[in-house]
Amino acid sequence: MTQARKQFILALEAVTKSFDGFKAIHDLTFYMDEGELRVVIGPNGAGKSTMLDLITGRTRPDRGRIEFGRDIDLTRLNEWQINRLGIGRKFQTPSVYTDHTVFENIWLSLEGARGILDCLFARVDSAQKDRIHDLLSTVGLQERAATKAGSLSHGQKQWLEIGMLLAQNPKLLLVDEPAAGMTDEETHKTGELLLSLAGKHSILVIEHDMTFVRQIARQVTVLHQGSVLCEGTVDEVQADEKVIEVYLGRGKRHPPTTNEP
């Protein structure tokens, strides 16, 4: 295990986090290879978002280790420090700067210096301009560069946020329900985008939409009550007794079938 660890981009070991006695994450151990595209599924309250919170420094674990790349301890860093290491996060609800133009949104997210002085005297140079326009065409928003982000449609905001994430050129992308609120066509395009990024970047996707999961996933991890229930391909996971028990045992909520919207 120790030898294999060298190539992990992300390692969570025996992580526990509780809120007011409720164990959101319980003894969670999770590894991700460099360049991997991993999908995490699980019923509501399984601890998926809390897991992302722990990785990105939004909350700190009560116990356990979270390491990024070669021995960088994430539990001691805060959000912006973690981001600067190359971990980007897309939130579940689109979070863009509504009062800024699409162009400005991307500019603010572009990798590079982020200090106060840098910001006071920064100018958009032509290389940056080209990069921004490239990114905008990747996410299909080049026509809307001068539009205020607040007036975009829900799907466009999702795309813009993905664009902002790409602008950071992160080593690890954490994507929380990217397909939420998208049309089928948009969802499919998102899937293709994520697939094209895999390899260059490591990507961790949290998703409910099984059609989408099936489209993108090679390896799926199922979370339940704050720890890993099982791992495997989509087919393996869907056939797993425990997984069916967890989803069906909880009533009608989100059985992991491909027919789910």
């Binding site: 978002s49 809390t50 609800t93």
Partner: peptide
């Protein structure tokens, strides 16, 4: 503090 688990 009554901790809320909501994201925002």
């Amino acid at each position: 503090v009554t901790r809320s688990r909501s994201l925002e």
